[in-house]
């Protein structure tokens, strides 16, 4: 049974929710419906983090994904007003190869996981609290932390430069 500090049915409800909303992102023809489906999928993933007793990740997921990234995506959809395409505009030509590939990868990894030969659950890891996490973040993982802040600044500048209107060169 799926483990964790919760009733196993909660896992199945969450998994159903996440997968159905994920399929909705791929399957909805209207882009705005896809975006709304994506928001609900992210929300489900946040609940999954909470069920996995990682409350900090759950809160950050809601803040960054459900809050920020969804808004950026919806803004992009509204700025690019997608014309209603015909049915043959919906999927690419390579769908014929993409669908079997995705199903095959899922099937192979599922068989490996169901056989249960690969992973053994060890002793239950003790989840570090918020205090311990912040101590780790600013001691052991301070270099990736600083590096990521640099990446964020670079991305911000890059996005502004890319999306800015070209100025007339006189």
């Amino acid at each position: 049974m799926p483990g964790g500090d919760f009733h196993p049915w909660i896992f199945f409800i969450l998994a159903f929710w996440i997968l159905v909303c994920g399929l909705g992102v791929v399957a909805f023809k209207k882009v705005m419906y896809s975006a709304v489906s994506m928001v609900f999928c992210f929300l489900g993933v946040a609940f999954a983090y909470a069920a996995l007793s990682a409350p900090l990740v759950a809160v950050v997921q809601v803040l960054v994904y459900v809050g920020a990234i969804s808004i950026v995506v919806i803004f992009a959809i509204m700025l690019t007003e997608v014309q209603e395409g015909a049915r043959d505009q919906f999927f690419n030509k390579q769908t014929v190869f993409a669908a079997p590939l995705a199903i095959a990868v899922a099937a192979v990894v599922s068989v490996v996981l169901v056989s249960g030969q690969v992973l053994h659950v060890g002793d239950k890891a003790l989840t570090p609290g918020l205090h311990q996490l912040s101590a780790l973040l600013f001691n052991r993982y301070v270099f990736p932390f600083e590096l990521i802040s640099l990446v964020l600044v670079a991305a911000m500048i890059g996005a502004i430069v890319l999306a800015r209107k070209e100025e007339e060169r006189s």
């Binding site: 483990g3 998994a15 899922a106």
Partner: peptide, 12 residues
């Protein structure tokens, strides 16, 4: 086991 279910969800 307990972990496999979550990994299955992730793979899907």
């Amino acid at each position: 086991n307990a972990l496999s279910w979550w990994l299955l969800l992730a793979v899907m």
